[in-house]
Nucleic acid binder design. Structure first.
Lengths: 156, 156
DNA sequence: ATGTATGCAAACCATTTGCAATGAC
DNA sequence: GTCATTGCAAATGGTTTGCATACAT
């Protein structure tokens, strides 16, 4: 998994903004920087707080707009685990693993499987050009499995 | 892919309701029947209209409650393709294919790959018991790919 | 008889939108 | 100087909630 520095991401973002004819505003770069700094999944509110905490104020409207750009630029990936709210993750991190989602408590575990990833990416489709994919495996984490077992016993 | 009749689904649902100690109301069975009758993906509004069209009135609250039960009973699968709204699909249908999602127009294509499915389901995890999984492959459908090409040419 | 399930309308809340002001080009 | 972008506040819309009534058990 190739680490990409924050600087490289700024370059990729700049290239994207230029190509699309979008303006290079300080808000957009500030948001990108904070996205890179967050480790793991985050939602819009967390990102907003992160920026506020650094005394960089952006409106939520701008936040939503910029996130959309970052997703379109393939720097960010959007997740929706079951019924939980929307979450985001740096694309380069997300590409390296799948997500195991506990249907009971919502806990997310990451699972790395390069062979499976390669096998999916190598597939050819008719009338469809794949760019990336996401896979969520739903089930029970060990805690919840144990809790359910106990609950079932009780009910006898 | 084993076809399951509407009758068998009612039996599975009955078994589920009994096991969980939930009541067997006519609304719940009516909703199940309409879910089975819809072919392919649907959202809550479509299901609501389907019931209204048959002169069977249920409140949206009941609809949401019952859908949750059906998902929990493994008769229904919840989908969220990119930024589109929540959609549902009969579980037995959904298990047989993956989804190719066009990032530009949102069109969904189905893609069957039993080998890949088996390979994912055979995986063993530590501290996690898988039950089912969903995979979305994002990319461009042929129409959008063509449209983008034309657009790029124009911009020269 | 009991308490779960329902219907209705109001509440909720993440996201979007309208519009005037700002600033990237 | 232009017009995309921003901030703010209001609007939106899918989903949830509260409460009185109905009905499965």
């Amino acid at each position: 998994m190739d680490k990409i520095s924050a600087l490289q991401k700024r370059e990729l973002f700049t290239e994207y903004l230029t190509r699309k004819g979008h303006r290079k505003t300080p808000e957009r770069y500030a948001i990108l920087d904070h996205v890179c700094a967050i480790n793991g999944h985050f939602d819009v509110e967390m990102l907003y707080q992160s920026l506020e905490g650094a005394n960089f104020h952006v409106s939520r409207a701008t936040l939503y707009n910029t996130i959309e750009l970052l997703v379109d630029a393939r720097l960010l990936v959007r997740h929706q685990f079951g019924t939980q709210g929307v979450q985001y993750e740096c694309a380069e991190k997300a590409a390296g693993h799948f997500h195991l989602v506990c249907s009971r408590c919502g806990r997310i575990q990451e699972y790395k499987d390069l062979a499976l990833r390669a096998s999916v990416l190598s597939k050819k489709f008719t009338k469809f050009t794949p760019e990336y994919f996401s896979m969520y495996i739903f089930g029970l984490c060990s805690k919840c499995k144990y809790a359910l077992k106990r609950k079932e016993k009780k009910e006898y």
